[in-house]
């Protein structure tokens, strides 16, 4: 349990997708104008992360990693399908997003009205693909660890976008040099927020 809590806390605060790796910046910059919509996008990203990362973990562990095929048939031990992981991961992400969109639209139209517009944006959100690649690189040992990582990453992303949106709402009335307005100041604010997040470095449970 301690290990899981550690992975969760690290993914949320220290290895924050936005502040430490700049992942998902495109939609982050485009949608962070108001708190309400940015929380919508944040929840959608967290949700998709929570579904895709464990699926990709299972595919990676049981099909793609070197020797994984030995379980399925004789001679599989020598096959390394690792080079296919990029294409498989992105296909899973695109398919899951499409499925989620259809499921949510059919069964919970109210949620669809809030999240629906964001879902197509998410298929090419780097945070989603990035989380799957990090999962592969960091070699998590169990599905539980993968869940903890996905949950933490999603929550971290949600925190970041909600936080920056709140600041941007205040900035709307501030007197900022004209060329810096909009995207420019958002970058600098994000940089300053990233510095404050660095104070979490090294904490562990």
């Amino acid at each position: 349990m301690e290990n899981l809590a550690n992975i969760f806390v690290r993914a949320t605060f220290i290895d924050n997708m936005i502040f430490a790796y700049f992942l998902g910046m495109c939609s982050y910059l485009a949608v962070s104008k108001t708190v309400k919509t940015s929380i919508g996008l944040g929840v959608a990203v967290a949700f998709v992360l929570l579904v895709t990362v464990p699926i990709n973990y299972l595919i990676n562990a049981y099909l793609l990693s070197p020797g994984a095929l030995a379980r399925l048939f004789e001679g599989g031990a020598h096959i390394d399908l690792g080079y296919l992981s990029f294409i498989v991961f992105i296909a899973v992400v695109a398919a899951v997003v499409q499925l989620l969109e259809m499921i949510i639209e059919k069964y919970t139209p109210a949620l669809y009205n809030q999240l629906g517009i964001f879902l197509p944006l998410i298929a090419v959100n780097c945070a989603i693909m990035g989380a799957s690649l990090f999962m592969q690189e960091r070699e998590y040992n169990s599905i539980a660890e993968t869940f903890a990582f996905a949950l933490g990453s999603g929550l971290g992303w949600l925190l970041a976008i909600a936080g920056v949106a709140a600041i941007r709402e205040k900035l709307a009335t501030a007197n900022i040099p004209a060329p810096l307005r909009g995207v420019g100041i958002t970058f600098i604010v994000t940089g300053l927020m990233a510095i404050s997040f660095m104070s979490f470095l090294g904490i562990s449970i």
Partner: peptide
């Protein structure tokens, strides 16, 4: 450290 990249891009955009 990562934050410097964000601030630099902000300044370049400016």
């Amino acid at each position: 450290l990562p934050p410097a990249a964000l601030i630099l891009v902000g300044v370049i955009i400016w």
